[in-house]
Simulated assay, not measured.
Amino acid sequence: MQPYERKQLLARVEREGATVGASIPETIDVQGDRLALREFVFETRSRESVPASERDRVEQAKKNLRRERLQRKHLLEDADIPHEEGERLVESIVGIDRALNALGDLGTSDIEREADANEAADRKRWMSFLKQALGNEDSSARR
C-alpha cells in the first residue's frame, strides 16, 4: 500500500460521521473470540434498559470492541498490507464504531435515576441547612 493510500484510509476511519450509513458487521473476531455482533447489539438495544445481570457483560463487550478497534487501527497504520486488506480493515473499524455508538448510550435510565436521587439529596441537605440556620431544627425535633 502506498503512503498516500494509507493516509486516505486512516482519514476515513477518523472522519466525523464515518459511521453514518455504516452497518454493524454480522460477526466479528474480537480478542480471539467470534462474536455475533449485529445480533448482540440489536438484542441489547431492544431492551428499555440493560438489566443489572447483563450490565457487566455489555461493558466487557464494549471494552473488548474498543481494544479490537485500536488493534485494527494500529495494523492499518503500521503493517505492510495490501490496499484491499486496508479497505476491509476500514470497513470493520467503522462497523465497530457503529456498534460502540449503538451500545454507548445504554443505561441512561440509571444515570437519570442517579441524577434524580442526587437532586433529592441536595434538596434535603438544603432544607436541613435552612432549618438549622433559622433555628427551627430543635422545634421540629420535638414534634
Rank of each mutant, 00 (worst) to 15 (best):
residue 67 R to I: 02
residue 78 D to Y: 10
residue 84 E to A: 15
residue 84 E to V: 11
residue 66 R to N: 07
residue 53 S to F: 05
residue 57 R to E: 15
residue 54 E to Y: 07
residue 80 D to H: 10
residue 74 H to M: 12
residue 68 E to G: 10
residue 83 H to R: 12
residue 55 R to L: 08
residue 59 E to H: 03
residue 68 E to W: 02
residue 50 V to D: 00
residue 81 I to H: 05
residue 45 R to I: 12
residue 50 V to C: 04
residue 46 S to G: 07
residue 56 D to F: 09
residue 66 R to L: 04
residue 61 A to Q: 09
residue 54 E to A: 11
residue 81 I to V: 10
residue 71 Q to N: 12
residue 66 R to Q: 14
residue 74 H to Y: 13
residue 74 H to T: 10
residue 63 K to M: 09
residue 62 K to V: 09
residue 67 R to D: 00
residue 44 T to G: 06
residue 63 K to T: 13
residue 45 R to P: 06
residue 76 L to V: 09
residue 75 L to H: 13
residue 49 S to W: 04
residue 64 N to D: 13
residue 79 A to R: 07
residue 63 K to I: 01
residue 79 A to Q: 10
residue 68 E to V: 02
residue 84 E to D: 08
residue 83 H to I: 04
residue 77 E to Q: 15
residue 55 R to F: 15
residue 68 E to C: 08
residue 56 D to S: 10
residue 57 R to F: 12
residue 52 A to R: 10
residue 79 A to W: 08
residue 76 L to Y: 02
residue 78 D to P: 04
residue 51 P to T: 03
residue 61 A to E: 02
residue 72 R to K: 15
residue 50 V to Q: 02
residue 76 L to K: 06
residue 72 R to S: 01
residue 61 A to N: 02
residue 71 Q to M: 11
residue 50 V to I: 11
residue 68 E to R: 08
residue 83 H to V: 12
residue 65 L to Y: 00
residue 59 E to M: 14
residue 49 S to V: 13
residue 68 E to Q: 15
residue 81 I to W: 05
residue 62 K to A: 10
residue 73 K to E: 00
residue 84 E to R: 14
